Amino acid sequence: MPKVAAHPELLPLLDRHLIDRPTDLQRRGIERFVVELLYFGLKEARACLFAGLFFLAVFLVPRTGIVGVPRYDLLLIIALTIQVWMIWAKLETLDELKAISIFHLVGFALEVFKTSGNIQSWSYPDFAYTKLFGVPLFSGFMYAAVGSYIIQAWRLFDLRVKHHPPYWMAGLMALAIYANFFTHHYTGDYRWYIAACTLGLYARATIIFRPYDHDRKMPLLLAFVLIGFFIWLAENISTFFGVWRYPNQLGAWSTVHIGKWSSWCLLVIMTFTIVANLKHIKRSIHVPD
């Protein structure tokens, strides 16, 4: 990956501080643990910049909108503003924006299908001028937020992947994951078969990351599960605020079914596969012969 020192003008001061290796490497014991935990938290918060700002708007914008502008329309304006700002501030590159746009498109297509009259997996009950096929355009940014997080985390944690499966295999698995979101309404739900194949495909894959100055390791599958869990938590908060509703939440709010966690884990794998094909990220991925 390109070194920050080679392009100091591209990153704000905070990013340079988080990415550069610290000069003081003498910390030991509990002090090291606290410092690493602090930097891990800071990097995670920074990686969630788009998602954090977007979902903050979700929570703060009232359901009735502001000065006559419907809530869903305001959320679209806010999401576009955040995205433009991140490009202007060079927090994301144009290549990364292209990948994020793919997440937006595939997410919006999924939303249109899931909210259609024949499926009705969930719904967007409020009025908006920027609804297309009954789905507010801002909804695609919820999927783009996951892609933005992975892209930012890759840079901030200097992520590297060992024993990544061949790209064509990972690509086929991502297509199977996405297709199953549609086909399981008409055929069997093959989610767990796909998950079993994914376990075998990524069983050896290890992600290497740097919270502070030392490299740490984690099974890539565990990372998928953890990210999926936190998205599931965010989904619970969003449905609580009525941004969208599942059929069982129309009368009174209840927690999102725990089974959605597995769906989000699979979606994270699909998103990760797209990000892994970015040119500057491919250089940090090891695919065994």
Rank of each mutant, 00 (worst) to 15 (best):
T23D: 13
T23W: 09
T23N: 12
D24E: 13
D24R: 03
L25A: 13
L25V: 10
L25Y: 05
L25R: 11
Q26S: 15
Q26I: 04
Q26P: 00
Q26D: 15
R27S: 10
R27W: 15
R28F: 03
R28M: 10
R28Y: 02
R28G: 02
G29H: 03
G29K: 04
I30W: 12
I30H: 02
E31N: 09
R32Y: 11
R32A: 00
R32Q: 08
F33H: 10
F33G: 05
V34D: 10
V35A: 06
V35E: 11
E36A: 11
E36L: 02
E36R: 09
E36F: 00
L37K: 05
L37W: 15
L37Q: 14
Y39W: 14
Y39P: 00
Y39F: 11
Y39L: 10
Y39I: 06
F40C: 02
G41R: 03
G41H: 10
G41I: 07
G41V: 08
L42V: 09
L42E: 10
L42C: 05
L42I: 07
L42F: 10
K43V: 04
K43A: 01
K43Y: 03
E44R: 07
E44H: 13
E44S: 12
A45T: 14
A45M: 12
R46D: 04
R46S: 07
A47G: 10
C48S: 15
C48F: 14
C48L: 15
C48V: 04
L49E: 05
L49R: 09
L49C: 07
L49F: 15
F50T: 00
F50S: 02
F50G: 04
F50W: 08
F50M: 03
A51G: 02
A51S: 13
G52H: 07
G52C: 06
L53T: 01
L53C: 10
L53Y: 03
L53W: 09
F54C: 12
F54K: 00
F54N: 02
F54L: 15
F54P: 01
F55Y: 14
F55G: 03
F55D: 05
L56G: 13
L56E: 07
A57M: 09
A57W: 03
A57T: 06
A57Q: 05
A57S: 09
A57G: 15
V58R: 03
V58Q: 12
V58Y: 10
V58P: 00
V58N: 14
F59C: 03
F59P: 02
F59K: 10
F59R: 06
F59A: 13
L60R: 01
L60Y: 03
L60D: 01
L60F: 13
V61N: 08
V61Y: 00
V61L: 09
P62Q: 02
R63V: 10
R63Q: 15
R63C: 01
R63G: 07
R63M: 13
T64A: 08
G65W: 01
G65P: 06
G65Q: 01
I66P: 05
V67R: 15
V67H: 06
G68K: 07
V69G: 05
P70F: 07
P70V: 04
P70K: 04
P70I: 09
